[in-house]
Design a protein around this nucleic acid. Structure first.
Lengths: 167, 167
DNA sequence: TCAAATCCCATTGACCCCCATCATTTCCCA
DNA sequence: TGGGAAATGATGGGGGTCAATGGGATTTGA
């Protein structure tokens, strides 16, 4: 499962938007046919992820001190405010008004891949921020320490399906 | 998987360009039949890599703190701006207009091998830069410390294919 | 009973598949 | 070693298909 690229789709007058085919393909082994969205706490954007990733977040929160303020806050912000949005027959979701308003989305939605997760933006807001990101990365001389290549054999499936598919 | 050499191909009027046979051969065990391209931070060029290399980048980012600013910038710059481009039946890709414009590509594309990755250039821009690079290397008297030969047995295949092709 | 959500179908345009041609390299044999 | 034939890779272009979109009809739930 890997989300990459920026895909701009139209928000129609019924509040629907198509989830990019590539993103749907990355999720086709999920038990829930749809996505989760919640408000980003850093940006004027929406955080998107799969159902199983949501469970991963919940499990991570479990490990924080049960009564810590931090865990409370994170639980409220992420789990409490997340929306579970199923596809319609054409692979679209309905963007709740609350989220449209929060992200200041108008008639277009940018789906931006971030690897295991993705974000939804008003494209007009995202574009300048992305340019700024690029500039900072360049100035910082940022490099990414890559994990050892041995863990990424060509053609390997990250999560082999249960049992079928004996090719 | 190793990308070497410079291969110049034509960009046709439909925005397609053939990926060099040698590069495709280096990728023939990938689960995704195509390449990823994103804008270089430093040069007027496009960075190219395999799908598994992209997975490797995502996994490496995943390990950085979920909310770190640096990880955010890198995700926007690399994952968010990358294009996943499948081959057509003839081993060509469609170069998105955005990338053609960024790299100032006209009617020709130079594929330049860089080992695990490669770059795409407008040949007219790349040539003088390559000459300058060669000159700097000579003047500097640069040397490269090689890894022990024992790690690279002759004739070994990095990942032996399943079973066919007993030539 | 009304509003909202879901289903269904029509339209359109970009992309992908297919085939035909051309150039180059490789191979074979004189 | 040279020439010609065959194979392979690169290029050009037409048309069918499918993803994205729009809107009506039906169902669901408050």
């Amino acid at each position: 499962m890997l989300f990459t690229g920026t895909h701009i789709h139209k928000l129609d007058r019924k509040g629907r938007v198509s989830v990019p085919k590539r993103f749907r393909a990355a999720l086709d082994q999920e038990e829930f046919a749809g996505i989760h969205l919640y408000q980003s706490h850093k940006e004027s954007a929406l955080e998107g992820c799969s159902h199983s990733h949501m469970e991963r977040i919940a499990a991570s929160l479990d490990e924080l001190d049960m009564f810590s303020d931090e865990a409370d806050d994170l639980a409220d912000t992420i789990l409490g405010s997340s929306h579970m949005l199923p596809y319609d027959g054409e692979g679209r979701i309905i963007l709740p008004a609350e989220l449209i308003e929060f992200a200041r989305i108008e008639d277009q939605v940018a789906f931006v891949g971030r690897g295991r997760t993705f974000r939804l933006w008003n494209p007009d807001i995202f574009k300048p921020l992305q340019d700024a990101s690029r500039t900072r990365t360049l100035n910082r001389g940022a490099t990414l320490k890559l994990k050892p290549m041995a863990e990424f054999p060509q053609g390997a499936r990250p999560v082999p399906p249960t049992g079928e598919d004996a090719s």
